[in-house]
Write a protein that binds this DNA or RNA. Structure first.
Lengths: 337, 337
DNA sequence: GTGAAAGCGCTAACAC
DNA sequence: GTGTTAGCGCTTTCAC
């Protein structure tokens, strides 16, 4: 077990000073070719790898960026992680990952942990963070981007879309099909502005047509297949029984469709079911899912770009609004008579 | 823009030495309550956050672990990331993520990058890495765990299962149903021992019954829905036409099933289609997918535990073999007459 | 272009 | 217990 070689060892073997060795490695063009060659040979000979912590300390930069998601296994987040990671890597930043399982205090803890580790920027989902998150970020002077939502009121950098418009988009689609009894199946609305705004969008669209969304027709369940199943059962027990179930995410829809199948409820003949996100499975489930397409990859790319811009040029757009789109497929249809 | 306070500032404000301030923060029980209180007050007052790089340099530890996956958006990897992240977090390690898109050289580059950054351990998928990966890891003396496969021959730490047995399990299921003309749809086998071994398992099971797997009945496609679709078309063009298509991952199966639907091919009446992984969608697709269940969460948990054990106690089992299981659902059936 | 030396901010002996 | 101090390994002025 030999100690790892340091720059000093490389310099000694190459017969140059540590300064030159350092330059040969990080700025090869500031060094004479002969020196460069000697250093490179020494590096190879010793299998030298530079110490990242020491480098970070001297440079006062870590080139790492943290991202915190509600969960990592929902495809919408997985896809965005994929995009972010690729973007960051291309710019020589490293991605650190954490998840909070919809627990605000865990999110705060992760933010603090990231700050401790010296990340240079941070990516968060939504706008409903604990205020202490923003306070910590402000004190540490760390740039951040909130993804998925837009908070026009506050001064945060956001890359997202109007969740309210999304809810309205789907509600109008169903209202146009003649449905009047809608039920909404979402996740916990507390501390989740996405769920809240989407529901609000539905309510608004209904109100515009003189309809009301009864409080008991707003169902809350965890964002899982099982939540979708439970939500469907709850919806079927309502009076009046809804003819359309608007789910807050595709995952919930799949669970709901599956449960409907088990219960012998025809979709969409007896019940229309809609999703939100348009994950890749949505197009190939049976029946194919009517949903709202969210530009997930674009959220990832733009957020990463925005954050890097803040870090490197301290100049980036405050708000980036992305377009969403209704994707009508087979899981919704004309309201039953 | 004020410079961030350092430990020295905290110490000064608290009226103690940097040593005491440091102890108060990292080892509160080694310090008198009164001192602790003064330091804590100063920390709060200045909103002090310690510098991770300096800490890492002094401690010669970074408490971070790198994981490199083929892709991040396949649910099998997303689910394992979820498990790994939670496990690591509970033990106070931070997860760094990278993906290589099935490109060996990118994997090697990520490994080197991680080593540069001083990660204390590394998680990789499969056993078919570039030899330079192991060489770099050995030189840097960094422990690692290979997930998903077992390489009994080499000395690597592995947490996985027998991919060959998995292939055989599915082949036998189909052979028992009377199929004799099987086709295999997998990804590139070069540099992917999982794909290779699963196919080999199929071939072995067929051979045991006196059947041969023709080379042209082994289809290679990217691990995507589109790959599944293309694979199905290719399979239907084969002579003799297979009655069962064994897909190397559930993702491929979904694409294949979707294409079969479009082409008007009845599954499983005219063609049985099987998957591998048992991702959560498998149970609720139509028809429900027959597949091999892989203990994804367990792979993540055990790999994380194994790696931490190597880091902290330098003592961990070389190989951990996990059980897999055939899950027979509706996408496979009796061979057509 | 190159070498010497002064930090970067923290921890861990060590002496008191 | 607490203060003092010597590193941790690298980058970067600043002379030469």
């Amino acid at each position: 077990m030999i100690a790892r070689p340091k720059l000093r060892d490389v310099a000694r073997l190459a017969g140059v000073s540590v300064g030159s060795a350092s330059r040969a490695i990080s700025a090869p063009d500031q060094v004479r070719p002969a020196t460069l060659a000697k250093v490179e040979a020494a590096v190879r000979e010793l299998s030298y790898v530079r110490n990242g912590a020491a480098r970070a300390l001297a440079l006062r930069r870590t080139f790492s960026i943290g991202a915190i998601f509600p969960t990592l296994n929902n495809p919408i987040y997985a896809d965005s992680i994929q995009a972010i990671q690729q973007r960051l890597n291309a710019r020589n930043y490293q991605l650190l990952i954490a998840s909070h399982e919809y627990d605000r205090s865990r999110e705060l803890a992760s933010v603090r942990n990231f700050i401790d580790r010296g990340i240079e920027g941070i990516l968060l989902v939504g706008t409903d963070q604990d205020p202490a998150v923003f306070e910590a970020l402000r004190l540490a002077q760390i740039p951040y981007v909130l993804m998925w939502s837009l908070d026009e009121a506050a001064h945060h950098h956001c890359v997202g879309f109007s969740n309210e418009a999304g809810g309205a988009l789907m509600a109008n689609h169903l209202l146009d099909l003649g449905h009047t009894r809608l039920a909404v199946l979402g996740g916990q609305r507390q501390f989740n502005e996405r769920a809240r705004l989407r529901t609000q969008g539905v309510r608004g669209a209904m109100a515009a047509r003189g309809l009301a969304l009864a409080e008991d027709h707003i169902l809350e369940q965890p964002f899982t297949f099982e939540g979708g199943r439970a939500g469907l059962r709850a919806a079927m027990a309502l009076h009046p029984r809804p003819t359309a179930l608007l789910c807050g995410t595709d995952i919930l829809s799949f669970g709901a469709c599956d449960e409907a199948r088990r219960m012998g409820i025809e979709v969409p003949e007896q019940l229309s079911i809609s999703g939100f996100d348009d994950i890749s499975f949505a197009a190939m489930s049976v029946p194919a899912l009517t949903t709202v397409r969210v530009p997930i990859t674009q959220i990832g790319n733009s957020s990463a770009d925005n954050l890097i811009a803040q870090i490197e040029e301290s100049e980036a757009p405050r708000h980036e609004r992305l377009e969403i789109e209704l994707i009508a497929r087979a899981s919704t249809g004309i309201a039953p008579a």
